[in-house]
Simulated scan of single mutants.
Amino acid sequence: MKRYPARKSCSKKPPSITDKERFDYAWKHFALIADQRIKTFNFYIIVLLAAFGGTISNLVRSDLPRHDFCLIGFAHICAAVIFWAIDSRSCRMLQVAVDALTEIESSPAFEGKIKLMLEDRKRNKHGLWHLLSYRVAFKATFVLQLIFGFALALNPSAFSSALKSPPSPQLPVQLHTAPVQPAEKQKGCSYEFNLKGSDHTFIF
């Protein structure tokens, strides 16, 4: 019986990734998510300006019912919540890329102040510098629109003078003439004003 030599194992070691390849991978991920976040916020600004323009044009009108302004306020709330959720998702994905970049920068290949992510994290850790960021600016915009939407939905009369006091109905005036007895050879007529809905009659 013929015997065949035993086959060698075909398993290979996984290819190693250099620090440069790891950094390029993490940086491309960071750049992609950051670019999408900025484009999304630019689109949100367009939606925000269009929404406020339509809201202001409706506030100057006096023929819209009150519940229409409540619907407009609810639309502002929905827009702020939707874009806030999208931005929060982008922030979490960006944080993953930032953590990877800071880990790579901790390797011996990076020396001095070339560690950009680590230096930025150290400087923003103390003081009020962490407030000067895209995240805080975006969140402030969303919060302001939410406050405006809730205020418009709950109390639309605070923004429109036409809703504060409805115009009082005007009573129709009827003009009646009645003959007047001549006095000292003068003839004339008297005018009698009677307001509908009122018991007073004015004659002169």
Rank of each mutant, 00 (worst) to 15 (best):
F43P: 06
I45H: 01
L48Q: 01
L48E: 02
A50L: 14
A51R: 11
A51M: 14
G53T: 03
I56C: 04
S57D: 09
S57E: 15
N58R: 05
S62C: 07
P65K: 06
P65Y: 03
R66V: 08
R66P: 04
H67T: 06
D68L: 10
D68I: 13
I72F: 09
F74N: 08
A75T: 08
H76L: 02
H76T: 00
I77Q: 11
A79Q: 13
V81A: 15
V81G: 09
W84R: 15
A85V: 06
D87P: 04
R89P: 10
C91I: 05
C91R: 03
R92A: 10
R92W: 04
R92Q: 05
R92C: 09
M93H: 08
M93N: 01
L94V: 00
A97I: 00
V98M: 02
D99T: 11
T102C: 04
P108M: 12
A109H: 11
A109R: 07
A109Y: 15
G112Y: 07
K115C: 06
L118A: 01
D120F: 03
R121D: 07
K122A: 10
R123E: 13
R123H: 15
N124F: 02
H126M: 15
H130V: 03
S133R: 05
S133Q: 03
S133K: 05
S133W: 06
Y134M: 14
R135A: 13
V136L: 05
A140C: 03
L146F: 06
I147R: 07
F148V: 07
G149T: 05
F150V: 13
L152R: 00
A153C: 09
A153M: 09
P156T: 01
A162Y: 12
L163Y: 11
K164I: 04
S165E: 15
